[in-house]
């Protein structure tokens, strides 16, 4: 009976997905509960900040520069048709600060740092390091998960801010230096249109949410991975796919809440 079999598979997958969501929520709650210990041992967070934040710097800065340059080029092409190329700065800055900065930085972060986190924890589990810790009465969530979680949450807004800042200069480079848009109107219109609270702080808030979601997904997938080579590779793939989709969907929801009516 192929039909009932298909139905069974769908049902099984649905129940499994709901089960995992529940597990992930409990995992998130446990991480928050044991965060106090990791804040008392701050050097653990510093170490993770290095491997998630500092090591992602290059990719974020290069990507931000090129995204800003493309925005400058494409924005100019469209705006000059209406004779309003002086609004190029506004377009580049708003696009970066509101959307592209948080979203693209989070996508890069998920594939650069999130996948590494999953693989690391998955391998720890496969080589029974986590069981060894439990044996020694060390809580693996407090020792391994919580520092990585806070490192991700702290570094994500900083990375997104750098992405936007570098991107604005990329747009400036292409728009003003190469194409020759008026420098004064580029900056002054940008400053007139970009509001600190409305645009910049909302962008920071967005990247904060993305940072939380990406690290929770990455850590949970690692912790939940079957302790085999195949299991770890599958978990790493799932981290990138799930967190990318989560970022894009959440972005829509957050944008609808933050910028509606503007």
């Amino acid at each position: 009976m192929p039909f009932t079999h298909t139905l069974q598979v769908i049902g099984h997958r649905t129940i499994d997905a709901v089960w995992r969501i529940g597990l992930a929520t409990r995992f998130f709650a446990l991480t928050l509960m044991y965060s106090g210990t990791s804040f008392r041992r701050f050097h653990l967070i510093i170490k993770e900040l290095f491997s998630t934040g500092v090591m992602s710097l290059i990719i974020i800065i290069v990507a931000g520069l090129f995204v800003g340059m493309v925005l400058g080029l494409q924005g100019y092409e469209t705006l000059q048709r209406y004779g309003s190329e002086s609004a190029l700065g506004v377009m580049v800055a708003l696009g970066l600060v509101r959307e592209l900065g948080p979203v693209v930085a989070a996508l890069l972060f998920a594939s650069r740092a999130g996948s590494a986190m999953t693989a690391e924890i998955g391998l720890m589990k496969a080589t029974e390091q986590i069981s060894a810790m439990e044996m020694m009465a060390v809580n693996p969530i407090a020792r391994i998960v919580a520092p990585r979680f806070w490192a991700g949450v702290i570094s994500m807004p900083l990375l997104a801010a750098m992405f936007s800042a570098v991107g604005v200069f990329g747009g400036y480079f292409v728009g003003v230096i190469q194409i020759g848009v008026d420098e004064g109107s580029f900056w002054s219109q940008m400053q007139a249109a970009v509001d600190f609270r409305e645009d910049i702080l909302n962008g920071v808030l967005k990247s904060f949410v993305f940072g939380t979601v990406v690290t929770v997904i990455a850590l949970f997938e690692g912790f939940d991975a079957p302790p085999t080579a195949e299991g770890v590779s599958g978990a790493t793939t799932r981290t990138v796919v799930t967190s990318s989709l989560a970022i894009l969907m959440l972005d829509f929801v957050l944008t609808a809440i933050m910028f509606r009516g503007n």
Partner: peptide, 23 residues
């Protein structure tokens, strides 16, 4: 390195607030 990272991030935020935004 972590210090450099945090300082660069905060500098980017300040730059966004001052140069890009209207603060």
């Amino acid at each position: 390195w972590v210090g450099i990272f945090v300082v660069a991030g905060i500098a980017a935020l300040v730059m966004l607030a001052m140069k890009v935004g209207n603060l």
